[in-house]
Design a protein around this nucleic acid. Structure first.
Lengths: 145, 145
DNA sequence: ATCTATGCAAAGCTTTTGCAATCGT
DNA sequence: ACGATTGCAAAAGCTTTGCATAGAT
C-alpha cells in the first residue's frame, strides 16, 4: 500500500506556527518571516513560505488571499469573517462571529459546485483614519478596489 | 486654483473599456491584452495595466484582486457578488443580485470606518468539474487556487 | 505648443523552485 | 541510513515604471 509521506517536525515550522498564533492580526509571509527571524536568525523566507503552505494544506491555518497583493495568514481556522483596511492592507477579524447570509441556498450556482465563501468588509482602520484627518482637502482621489 | 490634471481620451483606453464591457466574465489583464490586441495590434501590456488602473481610480470599472494570482477586472460597478473557481481561477457573477447580509449594522467595526464589502463564493466551475471526473482516485493531491 | 499617454524594456515585488547540505526519524 | 526539510539563490509570474516619442487638447 501507498506510504503517505509524513511530515517531520521541525523547529522552523514549530516557531512559525507559534508566532502566527501569538497574533490576532493576520500577518503577511514577510511579516511573519521578520518575527520568526528574531528567534531563528538563519531561517529563510523560502522556508516560511513552504511551511505556511504545508500548514494550509493540513488545515492547521488559513490563507487569506482576498487581501490585496500579499497573502495574509490566519491561525484561527474556525469560520469567521474579516475586515480589511483599503489604505494599508491591514486585516482584522470581524468581531461577533460569522455574518449569516440571508440566502443559504447557494448550492451549485451556475453549474459551479459551491464549497464555501469569503466575506471581507472593506474600510479604513483606526490608524489610517487618524493619519488621514488633516491631509484631505476636497481633492482626495478614490482609493482602490 | 489647482488645475486637476484631466485625462485625455485615447483610442487605447476606449477599446480596453469596450472589450471589457463585452464580457460578463472577468478577464485578467493579460486576457484583456490579448483581446485588445486584435483591434490594436501594437498596444502594449503596460498600457493595458495603466488604463485599467486609471479606470479603477475613476470608479468606471472594478478590480478583483487575489494575492499570488492575477487580478481580474469587472466592467460592472453595481454592487454584486462573485463566484470563483478554486481550480482555475475563473470568476463569474453571482446570479440573483447581491446577497443580503443578515447583519446590516456593521458600521465602524473595531474602530474601522466601514466602506463596503466583498463576498466571493468559492467552488469548482463546470469545466474543471468535468475534467476532474475520472482522474481522481484516492491519491490526488489538493490543488487549490 | 503643451504635456499626457504610449510602446518598449527594464525593474520590482511576491511567491516558487532546484540543489546540495542538514537534520528528524 | 533514509529521505524530508532547510538555506541559499535563482527563476518565475504578475505588475509597475523610466524614458523618449507620439498624440490629444
Amino acid at each position: 500500500m501507498s506510504h503517505r509521506k509524513l511530515p517531520r517536525n521541525t523547529r522552523q515550522r514549530e516557531v512559525i506556527l507559534e508566532e502566527l498564533r501569538k497574533l490576532t492580526s493576520h500577518p503577511t509571509a514577510t511579516g511573519l518571516y521578520a518575527m520568526v527571524r528574531r528567534r531563528l536568525p538563519k531561517v529563510s523566507l523560502g522556508t516560511v513560505y513552504r511551511n505556511l503552505e504545508l500548514l494550509v494544506q493540513q488545515g492547521v491555518i488559513r490563507k487569506l488571499e482576498f487581501s490585496g497583493s500579499e497573502a495574509r495568514f490566519d491561525g484561527n481556522t474556525e469560520q469567521h469573517d474579516h475586515i480589511r483596511c483599503v489604505r494599508c492592507g491591514r486585516m482584522d477579524d470581524l468581531g461577533g462571529g460569522p455574518l449569516e447570509l440571508t440566502d443559504g441556498k447557494h448550492h451549485d450556482c451556475d453549474g459551479y459546485k459551491v464549497l464555501g465563501y469569503r466575506l471581507v468588509l472593506l474600510g479604513v482602520c483606526p490608524r489610517c483614519n487618524a493619519e488621514r484627518a488633516g491631509e484631505d482637502a476636497e481633492a482626495s482621489p478614490g482609493e482602490e478596489e
